[in-house]
């Protein structure tokens, strides 16, 4: 485990690669909202980090720490108040269509079959559909859902629907995948299955992933690096490199190294509580 202090301008992510390989570069991004009563709220204060090609990076932190805000600014869906998140060497934010998106809800279209749902990116991006059929089968295999192509979403369980959503996010072979608490609404067992699948999907597809979660073990299990955030004001407090061997197994979570990282993050997130519990 290697950690680094992200704040302080020049210092960027731990052990990162030269800038040429960075898919995303966040320089002093911050977001300030106008609240209902007219006051200004700092959802996120100046943050710096980079995401390297093919990397799996998680954002972990308590609710209200600006994880989702940071994810949306990274995807260009919302504009930062100050600073910027640039994509590769374009000098600007990633453009719509160049990335995939997975949310907490599957956000499938119930009037379309699974196969047609997977074609949604092709419809919007007006892509050539001649090889789409094979791609659908390939991706459904990748997310472990063979043979559901002609089913409607409401015939599938929540976990299966989320798998379809992941397959859809990869249909247009995006360079980057943004996932906003994708397994947050699932039960523990389904969640573990999806964590295993996600690891496999990441290694098979080679796509760079930015992943928001508030499940620490999930973040450690899946990530190459973890951005630990804290609330009020939201900021990145530490960047942790997870150098556990891959592929990781469910058993890996009981290893000493795994636990060490997990505990470290826990201390960062709520130092008082952890100490108090330990003392009692």
């Amino acid at each position: 485990m290697a950690t680094s202090e992200p704040s302080g301008g020049e210092q960027l992510a731990a052990g990162l690669v030269n800038a040429r390989l960075a898919v995303l570069t966040a320089s002093a991004v911050s977001k300030r909202y106008q609240s209902q009563d007219g006051g200004l709220v700092d959802a996120l204060t100046a943050s710096n980090f980079q995401v390297a090609d093919g990397e799996f990076v998680s954002l972990v932190g308590p609710s209200g720490c600006g994880k989702t805000t940071l994810l949306k600014m990274s995807s260009g869906l919302i504009a930062p108040t100050h600073g910027e998140v640039t994509y590769r060497d374009t000098g600007r934010a990633v453009q719509p269509g160049a990335f995939g998106m997975v949310f907490q809800s599957p956000a499938l279209l119930p009037w379309r079959t699974v196969g047609k749902n997977l074609l949604f990116p092709h419809d919007i991006l007006r892509l050539d559909k001649s090889s789409a059929s094979e791609r659908i089968d390939e991706l459904l295999d990748m997310v472990n859902l063979p043979g559901v192509r002609d089913r409607y979403p409401n015939e599938l369980s929540g976990g299966m629907q989320q798998r379809v959503a992941i397959a859809r996010s990869l249909m247009h072979a995006p360079d980057l995948l943004f996932m906003d608490e994708p397994f947050g609404a699932l039960d523990a067992i389904t969640r573990e299955e999806l964590n295993l699948s996600m690891q496999r999907i990441h290694s098979t597809s080679g796509t760079t992933v930015m992943f928001v979660t508030h499940d620490i073990a999930e973040a450690v299990f899946l990530s190459d690096r973890i951005l630990v955030m804290s609330a009020r004001p939201g900021r990145v407090v530490e960047i942790i490199e997870v150098d556990l061997e891959r592929p990781r197994h469910l058993d890996s979570r009981t290893s000493a190294e795994f636990r060490e990282i997990e505990m470290h993050i826990r201390h960062l997130l709520h130092p008082e509580t952890v100490h108090a519990e330990a003392a009692s």
Binding site: S75, L77, Q95, P96, G97, F99, G100, M101, F103, A107, L109, F120, P121, I124, L125, H172, F178
Partner: peptide, 9 residues
């Protein structure tokens, strides 16, 4: 769903 559509432009 709206954000999904926006993410695809």
């Amino acid at each position: 769903r709206l954000e999904l559509a926006q993410s695809l432009g």
